[in-house]
Design a binder for these strands. Structure first.
Lengths: 239, 239
DNA sequence: CAAGATTTGTTCGTATGTATT
DNA sequence: AAATACATACGAACAAATCTT
């Protein structure tokens, strides 16, 4: 490896590996060669290769797994429209063949002060909390924690588990229509749980939405915090 | 430092430094002690401390500068509303005292195929490109590249430079009103230019919006790509 | 299933370069 | 000019997870 002055060695190596990936050099196995092999190839220390790979992992281009190797992870982005009629299934609908929601866990709990305010509940009232993930074509595209007023939506957990769709689960609870009142969007680094459920690398980016849905009478029916892998999802707001 | 089994040393140290920062231990100087000092304090190698600090820099909690030290950077988030009437100055308005837009550079160029389509221009028509940053209370909150049809908006570069506001610059060009047609939101890691202009750490998160504004007659007047530091900004969409 | 080989993850040591004070 | 502090790079060793034999 030639030492260009002013550019760190690991950066140069990172650029070359990225170029190799884009050129399809490793397409057969879908993996980057072992760190020791790359170190030898570029004539540098294994640490230097690791720094280069860490940068690529940051970009979401590769994903390292202990004992297995460093896999290449390149995929297209889903576009997720956000608006008054936002519905997950319809939004992703045409972009994926296989779409499913999976209920991870559910619980009945007392609403926190903040949550009670958002859902316009009285202090002490109970809510149903549902944790779930959504997959499109086998790839995890979101991870949600949702809260519903417990009294009105008893049984929505099983309805969601069976249908895999919030819209259909709400229909079973007598809500034929609902609208998205407000959506907040922010971005953070992936937490350990994100890494597991969304199949990300530590340090990857997660887009976070906090959304309130109401029924046609403007009564809050659901508050949801959803986390999306930023390398697989973007949002579109049409006005 | 006690070796908890199963948790990497640098992670434990990272957690302790973060706790120290949140506890206000370093508030006097606003800086973390030097790496060598931390290494001695925790009884580990300086590399291990560097790994811990790198993780905190990733989270946007600290920011290292060669030769100077590692500074603590914690701040509140601005909330940026997105909707049909989206205007930067009004959106941030009440959240900051001092707000200004700074023109970095401007150029007249031929619209790319993609851009011409978005602005509904004929192939070969020219556009004005403006690059600028916006600061709120002295902190950079966004970095934009904006394109305007060159013919209709001649002189908007100087108008923006003088007023520091797109809305006011457009008024000077005879556009009294405009609406946000569509906004795309995604998130990526900071590029070198982001690090410089938005005062970020490498690896920090940047929220990217791509927006199209039109005049009341639905004619496109501006296409803008804006990059926001995710640790300082979030978006809200009200429906 | 067990043992060994492979591959990434962590930690220490050491040295030198470069920017800032 | 000198001291300080972060940035980069190499070497060695062992741990942990995974795969192969």
């Amino acid at each position: 490896m030639q030492r260009q002055k002013g550019v760190a060695l690991w950066r140069q190596i990172s650029d070359r590996i990225r170029a190799n990936i884009l050129a399809g050099l490793y397409d057969k196995t879908g993996m980057v060669p072992a760190e020791t092999a790359l170190a030898e190839e570029f004539g540098v220390n294994r640490h230097t290769v690791r720094a280069a790979l860490a940068a690529l992992a940051q970009e979401g281009i590769v994903r390292a797994a202990q004992g297995r190797g460093t896999m290449i992870t390149q995929r297209d982005k889903f576009d997720f429209p956000i608006g008054r009629r936002t519905r997950f299934s319809e939004g992703i609908g045409e972009q994926a063949r296989d779409l499913k929601g999976i209920l991870l866990s559910s619980a009945r709990e007392i609403a926190s002060a903040d949550l009670a305010k958002r859902l316009k509940l009285n202090p002490g009232e109970e809510v149903l909390r549902l944790d779930g993930i959504r997959k499109a074509d086998g790839r995890a595209v979101s991870r949600s924690t949702m809260w519903f007023p417990a009294e009105r939506f008893a049984g929505i957990d099983t309805a969601f588990a069976e249908t895999g769709s919030i819209t259909r689960a709400l229909t079973r609870c007598g809500v034929d229509d609902y609208v998205r009142e407000v959506t907040e969007i922010s971005a953070v680094h992936a937490e350990p749980d994100d890494v597991v459920h969304l199949e990300l690398t530590p340090g990857a980016i997660v887009l976070v939405t906090r959304a309130l849905n109401t029924d046609p009478a403007a009564r809050p029916i659901q508050y949801a915090v959803t986390r999306f892998p930023a390398d697989r999802v973007q949002f579109t707001i049409r006005n």
